[in-house]
Amino acid sequence: MDKDILICGVGGQGTVLASGIIAAAAMAEGNVVHSAETIGMAQRGGPVTSHVRIGDKAFSPLIPLNKADLIIGFEPSEVVRNIGYLSAQGIAVVNTTAVKPVTASLSGSGYDGSEMTAYLKKRGNCIFADATAECESLGSVRFLNILLLGIAAGSGRLGIKKETMMSVIEKRVPEKFREANINAFIKGYDIGSATGQG
């Protein structure tokens, strides 16, 4: 399998675990995988991206523009920031809840993500879900990353089996949150399959 997956969000949203899970699951299915994270200064409240590159034709650690088959977006403006990476046939999974940067609060700008979602709707090739609200209904926003992985897997665009994903998630998350994470994944998976993208 050759596949380029870009995960984007804001520092602290759990993107790193999400990319680790995809990488491990893709390897478990026998693929060569490379990935890269933005860490350091940029991590604190800044935009973060993880690039997961599956297959042996990828040499650059970062996905070139117009090459991503899938974007998993934890925040609408971060999807817009990275939309140039999406290939013509690619799909973006977009969480519609905005993370308001402190600069927006200070300047009183009313950023709430809606104009980003509107822009992406116009552009097309997106699956929208209020994943944050779905997580809250499960009890905590800390499972946002797993729920979004579920949507991506359910949409059929991830190219990794549901069972493989679930067994990796079980291994990767702390024992006491295992059940909650699996529930989040399944909830996401159902949302993803309902989009009929697969």
Binding site: V10, G11, M41, A42, Q43, R44, G45, G46, P47, L65, N66, S77, V80, R81, I83, G84, Y85, K100, P101, V102, T103, A104, S109, Y111, E115, M116, Y119
Partner: peptide, 21 residues
């Protein structure tokens, strides 16, 4: 031949400078 992957028509993005937690 490819497009530049630009987002010239996108709405203004919120800046996210790194801040203290």
């Amino acid at each position: 031949l490819e497009s530049s992957g630009g987002v010239s028509d996108a709405p203004a993005l919120p800046a996210r400078p790194p801040v203290l937690c």
